[in-house]
Design a protein around this nucleic acid. Structure first.
Length: 596
RNA sequence: GGUUCCAUAGCUCAACUGGAUAGAGCAACUGCCUUCUAAGCAGUAGGUUCCAGGUUCGAGUCCUGGUGGAAUCACCA
């Protein structure tokens, strides 16, 4: 909470005590921003307190307003509209607040809380390249990690790679049958793309077999189970699990190609992890915990020896946790991995960034961990995000409607180049600088586009219309930063320093007041965004701040001003906005350029 | 069929967790570059917040019932 809000709330508490002999708790109420059609910046809604004030809404507002104007050094005026008390803050208070914020080295950053948070995201399969859906996941996970760190938590980013299983064997089998020894080197195809092709190839050939079997009179269900390719894939999985040398060697070779491809994609995205888990190491985990659950009476056995969790009381039905033959299912290893992650990093909270199609799975998992008596279970959180839809509907890899992550990023860079060149903004830049700028802008546009929407909500991506560079976009905010940078360069060359004497800044342009007001909200936004795991709140804030600055910039001259103290004040204000934009954008994983 | 989630301007999204006359961007229209970057600024137009009830000083937000859409309910992951 910022200084003005804090002080105001304390004084309102005092007002209630003095006027109505009522102990209002500062944490029990919030001041709201005043709507712009009214005078003032902070609004107290008095309706909830009419019982305590024993007066009508207007009289209550008047009484509190009058008290604050009399007794608070920072309240300069008030007005009451119906039950809304609108407060104006003295200009000197705003100027002092800016000075305090400008002096902070990392405005917005919270002191360490001692809380440890693990964030798991990305979690790709090693049988196909990353697509648009993965981008939303990766950007979300990365941004949420940064927001939680800014909130003062100790954060660990982890990636759990799905590198084994029947779907991996499908691409391996297709490669073995049809690959003719192709490699990324021999074909010039990126490793993950090459493997993805064989995954598709498997599906095509498998479908042909099913058609043939159906034509021979089998039911479709039987055909799917009995198709030779499927049987071979299953046999291959068995061989892999038995440690068959040739199979494991092929698996290692092909996964290696995929990782080389992923490394390039991650580097382009600007995303990294503190630790990478592999399912090939964790898929056997959890079986011992099943026994523990049986001993504790959390699970029960059925006649066929399969083990189940009874979650009927929570309307989650019964859930299989171990097959009758003793082999794992998906949730078995998740139970084991849960403990493993907690052993590695004794987290207070563990966030899973996973699509909302797995809502049910995580409800079940968290409930089971709780029943097993894990004290960290209440800290488990599923950051459930919505799908990215295309205008044609859902992305389907088999119908070729997926938007490839690498291709999309490259298109963004190309668009950025085109736009920048059309505007003639690369004069005086070296090729390297220009190239760096295109990547900054293209990636910024993409990340901002995907992060500005509430994570929980399904969203639409229209590749035809591409992503805009005007309006509520990443480049708009980046542009504002570049603009301010130009001002700061000029201030520097004129040798004007930013240390202003607050007592000499005696009048404040309304635009400057708006800006300082907006700046003071930043820490609160970080707190809200961390609490909601929502980069969208930070994105919205960055946009509003940039927009507010542009309004200021248009109306208020900075250098063309006689009063030297006011010039210094405006430069300091500009610099503080630039720093805050840079900070907010960095929480989204977006860089801001010095010029564009 | 059961469960969960969603529905706001032509389109894409907001609305500070129940507050004032529901806001931005895009698209359309009108102004503003001889002054710090026009990827900008200012303005016009655009709404029965899916429908019907209810709760209260106050509902886009909460409760009930509909309508429409999505996900899930696998001994897949």
């Amino acid at each position: 909470m910022n200084l003005i809000d804090k002080q105001l709330k304390e004084e309102i508490v005092k007002a209630f005590k003095t006027l109505f002999d009522f102990e209002l708790n500062a944490s029990d109420f919030e001041l709201q921003p005043t709507r712009k059609e009214f005078e003032g910046t902070h609004t107290l809604v008095v309706f909830p307190y009419l019982r305590q004030t024993k007066k009508g809404p207007e009289q209550s507002g008047e009484a509190i307003g009058e008290y604050l104007k009399e007794h608070s050094p920072i309240v300069s005026a008030y007005n009451v509209v119906k039950g809304f008390l609108n407060l104006s803050i003295a200009e000197s208070a705003w100027v002092n607040v800016l000075q305090a914020i400008a002096a902070e080295t990392s405005f917005g950053q919270y002191a360490p809380t001692g809380e440890k948070v693990m964030v798991e995201f990305s979690s790709p399969n090693t049988n196909k390249p990353l697509h648009l859906g993965h981008l939303r996941n990766n950007f979300l996970g990365d941004s949420v990690s940064k927001i939680l760190a800014a909130r003062g938590h100790e954060v660990r980013k982890v990636n759990l790679v799905n590198d084994r299983g029947i779907h991996i064997c499908k691409s391996m089998l297709a490669y073995e049958k049809f690959g003719e020894g192709e490699t990324p080197e021999s074909t010039g195809i990126k490793g993950d793309k090459l493997i993805g092709n064989y995954y598709v190839k498997f599906d095509q050939e498998y479908k042909k077999e099913i058609e043939q079997l159906v034509a021979d009179g089998k039911s479709e269900e039987d055909a799917k189970k009995q198709a030779p390719l499927m049987l071979e894939a299953q046999a291959m999985l068995k061989k892999w699990e038995d440690g068959d040398e040739a199979t494991v060697a092929l698996w290692k070779k092909m996964n290696g190609w995929v990782y080389e491809g992923f490394d390039i994609s991650y580097a382009t995205m600007g995303i990294s992890f503190d630790k990478v888990y592999h399912e090939s190491d964790t898929y056997l985990l959890g079986k011992d915990i099943i026994q523990e659950g049986l001993d504790k009476g959390v699970f029960f056995k059925k006649d066929d020896n399969s083990v189940w969790a009874d979650l009927m009381s929570e309307k989650l039905d019964e859930k299989l946790v171990l097959r009758g033959d003793g082999t794992s299912v998906y949730i078995t290893q998740d139970i084991g991995t849960c403990d493993l992650k907690h052993n590695d990093f004794s987290f207070n909270k563990s966030v899973y960034v996973v699509g909302n199609e797995q809502d049910y799975h995580f409800k079940v998992l968290f409930s089971i961990m709780d029943k097993l008596g894990r004290d960290y279970a209440k800290g488990l959180y599923h950051l459930s995000y919505g799908m990215v839809d295309l205008p044609s509907g859902k992305m389907k890899s088999r119908e070729g409607t997926v938007v490839d992550a690498d291709d999309l990023m490259q298109e963004m860079f190309d668009t950025a180049r085109k736009q920048t060149e059309e505007l003639g903004k690369i004069e005086g830049m070296t090729d390297e600088q220009a190239d760096e700028l295109f990547r900054t802008l293209g990636l910024g546009a993409l990340k901002y586009f995907l992060l500005k929407v509430d994570p929980k909500k399904r969203m639409l991506f229209n590749p035809q219309e591409s992503i805009e560079f005007q309006g509520n976009t990443g480049p708009f905010i980046q542009y504002t930063h570049a603009r301010i940078s130009a001002i700061l360069r000029r201030a520097n060359s004129l040798e004007i320093d930013q240390n202003f004497d607050a007592s000499k800044v005696t009048s404040l342009h309304p635009r400057a007041l708006d800006l300082i007001h907006k700046l003071t909200e930043y820490p609160k936004i970080i707190d809200l965004a961390a609490g909601d795991y929502s980069p969208a709140l930070v994105a919205g804030y960055a946009y509003e701040l940039a927009k507010t600055y542009n309004g200021f910039y248009q109306e208020v001259p900075i250098f063309n001003e006689d009063d030297k103290d006011v010039v210094k004040f405006r430069i300091s204000l500009s610099a503080t906005v630039a720093n805050t934009i840079k900070s907010a954008m960095s929480l989204l994983g977006i860089h801001v350029p010095e010029r564009m």
